[in-house]
Structure formats: C-alpha cells, structure tokens
Amino acid sequence: MARTCKVLSPLVVLALALGACGSSSDEGTTTTGADGSASRSLVTCRASGEITVAAAASLTEAFTTIGDQMEAACEDAAITFTFDSSGKLSEQILSGAPVDVFASADEGNAEKVADEAVGAPEPFARNQLVIVTKPGNPEGIASLADLADLADAGVVALCAEDAPCGRFAGQALEAASVDIDEGRVTRGQNAKATLTAVTEGDAVAGIVYVTDARAAGDGVEAVAIPEDQNVIATYPVVAIDGPGDDDLADAFVAYLQTDAAQQVLADAGFLAPT
C-alpha cells in the first residue's frame, strides 16, 4: 500500500533521527485492525506536550506542513507557530515571549537570543532573494536597476530594514549599485507583508525570498537576481528555554534535519544547508 508507506516514511525517519521515537514490543508495534489492515502506529514518537515555534515569516508554508507531520507522528503533541520578521521575533524572545524554538532567517538574530537559547543554532536551510512583479510583468522589469527607474512613480515593496529580508535586499541593491529613492519604497514588517504589497496592493514590484515568490504562485511573476548580486540567507534553528515541552522542542529542531523535513523545505524552494 503505497499510501500507507508515504505516511509512514516521515515517522520512520523521525524515529531514526531522534531516538526519541522507537518501536517497543509492548506498544506501538504493528497492530492488526478488525479488517486485517495494518494500522499506522508502526512507531510511536514519545515527545508530547505543547511547544510554540517562532519562525521567520518566509517559513510560513513549509513549517505549517512540517508541524502537521510532527503532530501526526507524535501523539498528543501540539505545535503552535508564530510567524513574523526574525528581528521582531528575536526582540520578543528577549522580552520573555513564551517561545520554545526559534527559526531565524539570518544568523544574527539567532545569535542575539543566545542567552535564552539551549544549545547552539544549527543551520537547516538557505534561501535567496528574487524580484517579484505583477503577473505578466507589465513594467518589463528585468533587473534590480529597473527598480530604481520605474515609470509613473511606481512604488517598490521592500522589507523593513531590520528584518533580515530588508537587510539582504539592501545588500543586493548595493552589490548592484542601485539606489532606490526611499520615498518610493514601502516597507513591509516582514517578508510576507512585503509580498502582500505586490499581490494585493499597488506596489509595482518587490524584493522577497524565492520561497515567498513560489508560495504566491500565479499572484506574482518572479525575476531572478544574478548570482553576483544576490544574497544567500542561511536559516538557523535553536531551542529556546521556554515554557513548553523540552523534548518536543528538541524533537522539532532535530526533525528539521530529516529527509522528510528537508523535502518539504526543498518543495517550498529552500536550498539545503551547506
């Protein structure tokens, strides 16, 4: 039954990767249902309880899927996400927000919360920037330089300068020697808000992550930024000394390195960590 195997594979990987899950003889081994089919509980993840994961807005889709996978694998586990700019989240964590795992879109913000962290930040994904335009690219934007030179005083959406995506966009523009008049730049508080200014609002173009552009589907057209101008963002994850279940927090951090989680991240457009 291919379908059963597909469901089970992340669980098996999880079991192998964590050691937190295992098959024991008295519980959780293959049980046979009344209809004779094998039930799903081949392995049992022992981590349970509740955790809150604070993650960069660009991780919204991938982490929601990964959270569903973990909740399916670990019985009685409840994972709550809070997505915003990594800068905002690190500030909240330092102010004592009840967070158990922090996944940042840059290394700086992960290091900023070192005092609250358990262990060292571990990279689990990388991301790149891309230009997004309205569907069909009506302005014919082909490069970063075109963003400084829009007809009709068009507005460009960038992330807030203190959100990683805003800082990276600044670096990319600098690498391309492009200077966009700040009076024509609307600043989104995180990557998703920046994307929304293009998909829902009247921003002509924006600079977001490749993954955001992919998540927006037909809502935008992506224009690649050449490698010598682009910025590679490394995403680290770190467990935080929070109120939630420590084992489940560790399990989540470890799960991100599994093939199953890496597949979800790759599907969302992330690059594997180096």
Binding site: K88, A157, A160, V185, T186, G188, Q189
Partner: peptide, 19 residues
Amino acid sequence: GNIAGRTRTLPLAVYLALE
C-alpha cells in the same frame, strides 16, 4: 503602505522603530 515621508505616520514609525 509604509513609505517614509509619504505614508509613514507616527503609529507606523513606532511599530517600525521598535526593533
């Protein structure tokens, strides 16, 4: 939106400057 000098009013500036 949130454009300096054009649409960035006090509450927006407060939110943006918080970090």
